[in-house]
């Protein structure tokens, strides 16, 4: 029983990292219907910026983290301005491909720096080890992830319900033409969505860096892990992203704990089912409930 609870808690902790990475992704999709394949690169850049500010510029870690989130938000804004804005009205495949091309460009930019290869670690800013309560254990970086996710979820909730900008974002997500006609600046909304996406991606990157060190491939891989989470939660639902992320985290934890043995019995040796189960779930969801747990079904008229 205690094993079960421990696996659950560890899964939730990892899931919060996915949720954090998924938030920005969903926001971009919600407002502009763009599937962003360069999310992983934003995560990596955010983490590396924080490292550079903390280690090279010798800023306090928390300040460095904050600055890197703002800078990555700026990068998101810039990317929207330079690339995505030109793609408004283009076929969806073109827009998706632009984000794939963008991912490659951002990779190239990282190769220009020493971060292109090798492993880096943040200076110690959290106490070592973790919280142990009655045989259950959570590491401090994982607590950081849970905290970050909670903060962002509250902020987003307030933002979408109360602020003018948030309401106009929802309006744009609902109907671009109609919101333009009532005077909402669609361009401003798109730019803002990308900026916020950069911000949350950087937050995710910093948490990943604190948990497991910084390595370009590892950070980018988090971007890929987000896809099952968002399909599960529904591509255009902010709470869905959080729930989806947490479910995928738990799924991975349980796969390692309970499924690896089953797989080896059917001849798939070596375990590692945590890497494939999210994608199996993704495929099954697409077969049976493509719009996810919380997503809105698209209704089309000829």
């Amino acid at each position: 029983m205690i094993d079960f609870v421990q696996n659950l808690i560890s899964g939730i902790a990892v899931g919060c990292i996915y949720a954090l990475a998924a938030l920005g992704f969903v926001l971009v999709y919600k407002s502009s219907r763009v599937i962003n394949f360069s999310n992983g690169q934003f995560i990596a850049i955010g983490a590396f910026l924080a490292y550079a500010l903390a280690v090279w510029a010798k800023l306090p870690v928390l300040l460095a983290a904050l600055l890197s989130m703002l800078l990555t938000a700026g990068l998101g804004f810039l990317v929207e301005r330079v690339f995505l804005r030109r793609m408004v009205g283009q076929p969806i495949i073109s827009v998706i491909m632009v984000t794939i091309g963008l991912a490659s460009v951002l990779d190239g930019l990282m190769y220009l720096t020493p971060f292109g290869s090798g492993n880096f670690t943040f200076p110690q800013f959290l106490p070592q080890g973790g919280l142990n309560l009655g045989g259950l254990s959570v590491s401090y970086p994982q607590l950081l992830a849970i905290g970050f996710t909670a903060i962002f979820l509250l902020l987003f909730g307030w933002f979408f319900q109360r602020s003018v900008l948030g309401v106009s974002m929802r309006a744009v997500a609902d109907d671009q033409l109609a919101s333009m006609s009532v005077g909402v600046s669609v361009q401003r909304v798109f730019a803002l969505a990308w900026a916020v996406a950069g911000l949350t991606a950087a937050a995710a990157g910093i948490v990943v860096g604190a948990v497991s060190g910084l390595n370009q491939d590892g950070l980018i891989a988090i971007g890929l892990a987000v896809f099952p989470a968002v399909i599960l939660g529904g591509l255009d639902s902010v709470p869905g992203a959080v729930v989806g992320g947490i479910i995928i985290g738990i799924l991975q934890s349980f796969s390692t704990a309970y499924l690896d043995g089953l797989f080896s019995q059917i001849g798939l040796v070596g375990g590692g089912s945590q890497y494939v189960m999210p994608f199996v779930v993704l495929l099954v969801m697409l077969w049976f409930k493509p719009h996810g747990l919380f997503g809105t079904e698209e209704i089309e008229r000829v």
Binding site: G101, A103, G108
Partner: peptide
């Protein structure tokens, strides 16, 4: 950096 940069830029610029 040349290879990923050029590959990505070619895609984006063509699109």
């Amino acid at each position: 950096a040349l290879l990923p940069l050029s590959f990505g830029l070619v895609i984006v610029l063509f699109l």
